[in-house]
Write a protein that binds this DNA or RNA. Structure first.
Lengths: 188, 188
DNA sequence: CAATAACCGTGATTTTTATCACGCTCATTT
DNA sequence: AAATGAGCGTGATAAAAATCACGGTTATTG
């Protein structure tokens, strides 16, 4: 099971068995059930979660009480409240499970420790953060330059598997449109 | 002038005079004129630019020929096409100057070299990338949960100085609305 | 100094999207 | 087996934003 983390790391840097054992010793395994919360608004955010399997979402309520999806995380994704995690402050995001999910989580201290002790892991995390940044720049561009239909098409192209696993209402929330508008887009 | 870079770095890590001299030796100074291009779509992106003064924008044309602003960069900001810079591929963004601008730029190799040789600089760049990521997550949330007026108010609150320096047309493009809609928002 | 272009406001209209309302299906619970 | 609720589609209407069009101001340029 934890081999998934190794494969994930080795997409970026090659490591030995011993190195991986050492890396893994900085993570803790935890299983969450469907609908269970991983992080709640106002919690201190101690960990970054690597998803072994399952499906989670991070989201925020607006002042009118509407939820907005920041991210869906499936197998091989990382999920947390980055702002709160890196600054070790309270969450403004919520994270909960759309499916039963298994995770390996790591504290900021352990992450910094790995970065300090292993240049490869420092490189790995740096690459991950960078690609997360690049991905969010792309999402920003899609939000400012695409209309509802174009954003939906872009989503289906990027995450075809999520279409089956995530209720349309939540996809609409991720896209910044209402479920009714999304329904009309897909029924035509 | 290059003291600005030092101050910027020292907001995150303290460095000695010698260390700063060494860091600085990895950067090159370049001045750009108003309307001059720093990066053009399809260029290879060799550098990340630290802005000493002036004002630049990064943007992309959509298929209808409309420009969309990804970022405005003033004093103490970094600007590049991150995707192309980190992967050393061709730009999909354009970067040009709204004002005469002075920059210190660094190549990816030199950046990696500094990260390898100086843990402090590795930490500095990691922090920078992280805070860029956090900032773009916030912008995503503002785009999916705010209407035009709310996005404009959020912009004025975040970047009050840019209101004076950037034409309204470009602010509208950054917000993902038309200049006419923005004009009506501000005249009421 | 006239000509030009950038920038901005605003009216009229159209298009897009949100809101409100209702009903259907399907799975889960009692 | 009936009851409940989540998920989804869809009609009618309202609201938000885009589009098209025009004019006015200001700065720049030939």
């Amino acid at each position: 099971m934890s081999q998934k983390l190794r494969q994930h790391i080795e997409e970026i840097v090659k490591i030995t068995d011993e190195e991986f054992e050492y890396v893994l010793s900085h993570f803790t395994y935890r299983k969450f059930l469907m609908n269970q919360y991983v992080i709640q608004e106002r919690d201190y955010v101690k960990y970054d979660y690597f998803v072994l399997n399952g499906l989670l979402k991070s989201w925020q309520l607006d002042e009118k009480g509407k939820p907005h999806i920041v991210l869906f995380a499936t197998e091989n994704w990382w999920i947390s409240d980055p702002q709160a995690f890196y600054n070790q402050t309270k969450a403004t995001l919520n994270i909960d499970c759309l499916e039963d999910s298994e995770t390996l989580y790591i504290s900021l201290d352990n992450r910094e420790k790995l970065c300090t002790e292993m240049r490869k892991m420092e490189y790995f995390f740096r690459k991950k953060t960078t690609s997360g940044y690049v991905a969010s720049q792309k999402r920003i561009l899609s939000l400012i330059s695409f209309n509802a239909k174009e954003r939906y098409d872009y989503f289906t192209q990027q995450y075809p598997d999520l279409l089956q696993r995530v209720p349309k209402t939540l996809i609409a929330s991720y896209l910044g449109i209402t479920r009714e508008t999304l329904s009309r887009l897909t029924s035509q």
